[in-house]
Amino acid sequence: MTKIRSRQQLIDAAAKVFAEKGYDAARLEDIAAELDVLQGSLYYHVGSKAALYRLVLLQRFETIIVAIEKIAAGTASPEDKLRQAIREQLRYLARHRSESAHWFDSLPANDKAPAEAEEDRALLLRLRESWKAIIREGIRTGAIRKNVDASVAVLSILGMTNYVARWYDPDDSRTIDQIADTQFAMVWDGLAD
């Protein structure tokens, strides 16, 4: 038996088990076995399976939010920002492919405390706002049609890009960048003025 060396080690092991088994089938015993520790050792770091799953999701979500925020704040054209953001989103999903298909399976509402639900809403708002900033800049500069509803555009883009986690196969002849480029072309053709 070893000991848990860091919170990151715990999150990585939990992410692996959740990816392999799914949230419902994964057990804390499985995560403890992945870490080669006693199950009781987990309780020193986290109070429940739901809390551990939440740590995994929050870390993954924060990472992609920061990446998209940096793209939105950059100096590239709105067209290039949108291309970069779609590519970053898909690369991120591909990097975490084994677990990313489960990211959008939410926990039952009764597994979340009101503060957690509010934190989730705030994070989701941050993500959407960074994407909207790109769309709004495109509208302001005339690169994107003025009648485009930024909220609908962003929700559509996120729906399309996030769903790739459900069907992407790295053994396919298409690379993740080729898929991103195809998605960007479809989006841009629908938005460009």
Rank of each mutant, 00 (worst) to 15 (best):
I139H: 08
A133H: 03
E99I: 11
H45G: 01
A50E: 08
L42M: 04
I71A: 12
E62S: 12
I65W: 02
L57Q: 13
L38V: 09
L82D: 01
E34C: 13
A115N: 08
E116D: 10
K81F: 03
E129C: 08
A133E: 14
H102T: 03
S48Q: 03
Q39A: 07
S48G: 04
L57G: 11
E118N: 06
I135R: 13
I31A: 10
E137I: 00
L58Y: 13
R83Q: 12
K132G: 04
D111A: 14
I64C: 00
V56P: 09
K49T: 01
L82N: 03
Y43V: 00
L90E: 14
I86T: 07
A85N: 01
R95T: 12
V66F: 11
H45L: 03
I134V: 13
I134R: 15
A117W: 02
L52W: 11
S98T: 13
A115R: 08
L124D: 13
A117P: 06
W103V: 00
A50L: 09
V46Y: 10
A32W: 10
L123V: 02
H102E: 07
I68V: 11
H45V: 00
R87H: 14
E137Y: 07
A101M: 08
E88I: 11
A67P: 04
L58F: 13
F61T: 07
Q59W: 10
S77G: 09
A33I: 03
E116M: 09
G40D: 01
H45D: 02
W131E: 08
Y53S: 12
Y92S: 12
L127K: 10
A50F: 06
E99S: 11
T75R: 01
V37F: 00
R97C: 15
S106T: 10
I65M: 09
I134Y: 10
H102I: 00
K81C: 09
K49G: 04
L125G: 05
R54P: 01
T63L: 14
N110G: 05
Y53R: 15
A50M: 05
V66H: 07
E119H: 05
Y53V: 00
V37Y: 03
I139N: 05
K49L: 02
A67Q: 14
L35A: 09
K132W: 03
R140T: 14
Q84W: 01
L127G: 11
K81P: 09
A94E: 14
P108R: 01
G40Y: 01
K132P: 02
I68N: 00
A67D: 09
D120Q: 11
L123R: 09
L55K: 11
D111F: 10
P78R: 09
A32C: 08
K112D: 07
V56C: 05
L125R: 14
R87N: 14
A113T: 12
E118R: 04
H45E: 06
I135A: 07
I135M: 06
T141G: 02
R83P: 06
R91V: 04
D111H: 07
F61H: 13
Y44M: 04
A33E: 08
I134K: 15
L107I: 05
I71C: 10
K112A: 09
I134N: 15
L93R: 02
R87T: 15
W131S: 05
Y43R: 10
